[in-house]
């Protein structure tokens, strides 16, 4: 190996342990000395290259990763939470809308309320007097000019979401109910309807709808007419 080649290779890598380099060095003391010198020089370079590392760097690297990962996780969780919240929100809205949507079928509700009417105990043995009824009717801007019969109870109740006044009357044709409910545009109220046990008829009065419900076979017209005749509305 010529001098130049030897030097080039030792310069390029003083720790070169390739056989031909070792051989060349063993055979020539000058080359050996040069090689040793370069090795020593390289040692110094090697030491100098190892600049001090910030003491806490390893911790920082591990720490930053956990923190960012945690932040990411949190962000992801936040995203999940937001997602869940939106779903809950939409569900809530839909439910409310569905729930609040005036049931097209108020009549069915009226029929259902009849089941309760039977259980409803009158507040006293004495019939509810006209004054009490009128006090409750006032909310609808209505009042009764005269008695419409033996009213056992007068209570507000909700047909679907529509607040109504539910009068339960004891008549010679059994228990009957009169519902007074405010006008509501999007509410479809059939003129007459029937269920398994009860049937009902509705009438559109000046400012409110009135539904009269009685047992199947009971004649509703008399009571309906009585209500229609006697119910007056304030203007």
């Amino acid at each position: 190996m010529d001098e130049l080649e030897f030097r080039r290779r030792v310069y390029a890598n003083p720790d070169n342990n390739e056989q031909d380099v070792i051989d060349a060095a063993t055979q020539d003391p000058e080359k050996q000395a040069f090689r040793n010198e370069l090795k020593a020089f390289n040692n110094r370079l090697s030491v100098a290259s190892k600049v001090p590392v910030p003491e806490d760097l390893a911790h920082k690297l591990i720490w930053q990763q956990s923190v960012r990962d945690f932040a990411l996780q949190k962000k992801r969780n936040r995203w999940y939470t937001a997602m869940a919240a939106s779903i809950a929100f939409v569900a809530g809205i839909s439910f409310t809308q569905w729930y609040n949507a005036p049931q097209a079928d108020l009549s069915m509700q009226a029929l259902a309320h009849m089941q309760y009417a039977e259980q409803e105990k009158s507040h006293s043995a004495v019939p509810v007097d006209l004054q009490q009824i009128n006090a409750k009717l006032a909310g609808f801007g209505a009042h009764l000019a005269a008695d419409i019969g033996n009213v056992k109870s007068a209570n507000y109740c909700h047909l679907s979401t529509v607040r109504s006044l539910h009068l339960i009357l004891d008549t010679d044709q059994g228990l009957m109910s009169v519902f007074v409910l405010p006008h509501s545009d999007d509410t479809a109220l059939p003129k007459s309807f029937a269920g398994e046990r009860f049937h009902g008829e509705s009438v559109d009065l000046h400012k409110a709808n009135v539904i009269v419900v009685g047992e199947n076979g009971a004649e509703l017209a008399p009571l309906k007419n009585k209500v229609t005749r006697n119910m007056l509305f304030s203007t």
Binding site: S49, K50, V51, V53, P54, L57, A58, L61, I62, Q65
Partner: peptide, 14 residues
């Protein structure tokens, strides 16, 4: 990851 950091952070920094 921690193994990687401990093994290489110093020389990588240098």
């Amino acid at each position: 990851y921690e193994t990687l950091v401990r093994a290489f952070h110093a020389d990588i920094y240098r």
